[in-house]
């Protein structure tokens, strides 16, 4: 499959790609690998900083590197989830259908950060204590919600391959992947509840999420109206 063919196949997985305006700018082949590489820079940094703090006695991650790394990866998981959810509005606004591929990319990267976040929490923060994990998930709503956000991302990550898109068909695939909205909302609530008192950053993320939902709502309404108009015109 050629690059162009692949993109149009994926664009139609959007269900609305056919309506995307004529493609202007074509991305060079190295753009995608570059974006992926850039996305893992925060991870590389936190891994290096953690190592340095432990071995070289630096304080790149403050005096409490485990907590800091936990927060850091949680934040980046949420940021990439928001970026993932911003792709569709952006695609429609600037009319670049090929962007659709980046939705899956950012979704997978968000998932990756969330898994590392969970790993730090379970492996280092609560030191593999299953009893503590169970207690946290059952008694502490913000952890329940975080866990749910992550679990919902698992089927999405698994079915993110081209094979699965084909197997499920566009319609089903799109329906399933709408779960990412739920993960986004749960992620923001989880963040909001996790901070002690200073809720400015979680509120900002909530606002970004709301904006991307708001845009979708308007777009869908306009689409419905347009469809009704076309039906009438016939």
């Amino acid at each position: 499959m050629t690059a162009v063919g692949e993109e149009s196949a994926l664009a139609s997985a959007d269900g609305r790609g056919s309506r995307a305006r004529p493609q202007g700018f074509r991305p060079p082949g190295w753009l995608h690998p570059l974006v992926v590489a850039a996305s893992i820079i925060p991870f590389v940094w936190v891994a290096y900083a953690f190592y340095s703090d432990l071995v070289n006695n630096t304080r790149l991650l403050t005096s409490e590197p485990i907590k800091e790394a936990e927060h850091f990866t949680g934040k980046w998981a949420l940021r990439f989830l928001l970026v993932c959810l911003a792709v569709t509005p952006l695609m429609r606004i600037i009319g670049l259908g090929w962007l659709v591929k980046y939705r899956r990319t950012f979704g997978l990267i968000a998932f990756g950060y969330a898994v590392v976040h969970l790993g730090i929490y379970f492996g280092l923060d609560i030191e593999l204590m299953w009893s503590n994990l169970v207690e946290d998930v059952l008694d502490r709503l913000y952890i329940t919600l975080g866990m749910l956000a992550l679990l919902l991302m698992v089927p999405l990550a698994i079915t993110s391959t081209k094979g699965w898109i084909k197997r499920l068909g566009n319609k089903k695939w799109n329906a399933l992947h709408r779960l990412v909205y739920v993960s986004g909302v749960l992620g923001v609530i989880h963040f909001y509840m996790a901070v002690k008192r200073d809720v400015r950053e979680p509120l900002l993320y909530g606002a970004i999420l709301a904006a991307s939902f708001g845009y979708r709502w308007f777009w869908n309404r306009r689409e419905t109206q347009r469809r009704q108009m076309t039906a009438l015109a016939r």
């Binding site: 005096s63 030191e127 502490r140």
Partner: peptide, 17 residues
């Protein structure tokens, strides 16, 4: 605390609780 256990603590500079 409603959001975490107070049974254990991390002494700054130590890895284990």
């Amino acid at each position: 605390h409603p959001r975490w256990t107070q049974a254990r603590e991390r002494r700054i500079g130590e890895l284990r609780r």
